[in-house]
């Protein structure tokens, strides 16, 4: 059921390898920001598919373009940010070209969203029941009573104890973890086929994080909902994701099954990312880190964006940008190391 992300040809993403249609197919998508000093390219050539019921983890450091990719899928890029290229398909319907009104129909109805901070995601002045009911009624056209019943069912489903009483409580009466459960219930309200979860556990206590990731995983299995899980936390990815896409400087540099990416990363950046996870067993003097920092959008190096920080870099890396290409079964990486070496000219 794993689907490869991209073919080796630059700019021509492949059709899914398996006949089963993906829930989401992002093809060659880029996001740009017009500024006074010209266009800034934030992401470029991002392609991936998500199968029904699959969790795709998207990792990378701050500013790598993971959240932008998530936001472009639900069509909530903050102006002046905009799509510069590519296509986004949801269940065989192209959604990036829809009108504002039609996008609204997709948003919430077919794609749910979960944001980082459950403290600020909920409207502080309405009860959680009211927020759930307005969403349910708008999308599903239920009457008041039916909507409330559905809201209760959702709260039970996301594991909120005493839902009958809690439904009339305000967000500030819930703890952080419980609030994120409410947010998840809201994302599920209209029974979407895809959920964009943008750092859903980052703002939570570590002990609560595990509960929330377990809940996401369970709901994903029960309802067949696919999830695009955007996070910088490799631990969350390891626990939850079926496949992983690693982003660096606005591009997908490696994508493949979670186990493979975590245990046998191909791209030097992914390897650095894995090495920088502190381990309890080996107590190193200093934590491993990748030297340097990600290039700014207005000063992207030529060639591979990672080459100034890469210990394997050769002359070719500074000249040509490596395409995302298959490097084994189901795995793709954008690195010359796996595509004919770093020295020669292609």
């Amino acid at each position: 059921m794993m689907l490869t992300a991209s073919s080796g040809h630059k700019g021509l993403p492949s059709m899914p390898a398996v006949s089963r249609t993906p829930v989401l197919s992002v093809r060659n998508v880029g996001v740009e920001f017009p500024t006074r000093h010209g266009l800034l390219t934030a992401t470029e050539g991002v392609s991936f598919d998500i199968a029904p019921g699959e969790i795709l983890g998207m990792v990378g450091e701050s500013g790598a373009g993971k959240s932008l990719t998530g936001m472009s899928v639900i069509g909530l890029l903050e102006p002046p940010g905009r799509l510069s290229a590519g296509e986004i398909w949801l269940e065989s319907e192209r959604i990036d070209t829809l009108s504002l009104r039609e996008r609204q129909r997709v948003r919430g109805r077919k794609i749910g969203a979960i944001f980082q901070d459950p403290l600020t995601s909920l409207h502080p002045l309405f009860t959680v029941g009211k927020q759930l009911c307005e969403t349910i009624r708008y999308h599903l056209g239920l009457d008041k009573k039916a909507a409330r019943a559905r809201a209760l069912e959702l709260l039970n489903q996301v594991g909120i104890p005493g839902a009958e009483q809690r439904i009339d409580h305000y967000p500030h009466q819930f703890s952080g973890g419980m609030r994120q459960r409410v947010v998840i219930a809201l994302a599920l309200a209209a029974g979407p086929s895809l959920i964009i979860a943008d750092e859903p556990t980052t703002a939570l206590d570590v002990s609560v994080q595990a509960q929330i990731t377990a809940l996401l995983k369970q709901l994903c299995r029960e309802n067949g909902t696919a999830i695009l899980l955007v996070t910088h936390d490799m631990g969350v990815i390891a626990e939850t994701a079926d496949r992983v896409a690693v982003m660096y400087a606005g591009r997908v540099v490696e994508i493949g099954p979670a186990l493979d990416v975590i245990q046998r990363p191909r791209h030097p950046y992914t390897q650095g990312l894995m090495n920088s996870i502190p381990s309890l067993k080996i107590r190193a003097e200093a934590l491993n880190q990748i030297d340097g920092s990600m290039p700014r959008l207005d000063s992207m190096p030529q060639g591979c964006a990672f080459h100034p920080r890469c210990s394997f870099a050769g002359p070719r890396c500074a000249k040509q940008r490596p395409p995302l290409a298959a490097v084994g079964e189901n795995m793709s990486a954008a690195c010359w190391l796996h595509q004919g070496g770093v020295n020669g000219d292609a």
């Binding site: 609204q104 997709v106 919430g108």
Partner: peptide, 25 residues
């Protein structure tokens, strides 16, 4: 604010977002 962004992500129509969620605040 985030709750307006989240209300948009829930697909609520603009009039609800502006006149119920926004104005109330």
């Amino acid at each position: 604010t985030d709750f307006i962004k989240f209300a948009r992500a829930r697909g609520l129509p603009n009039w609800i977002i502006y006149f119920r969620h926004g104005l109330r605040n």
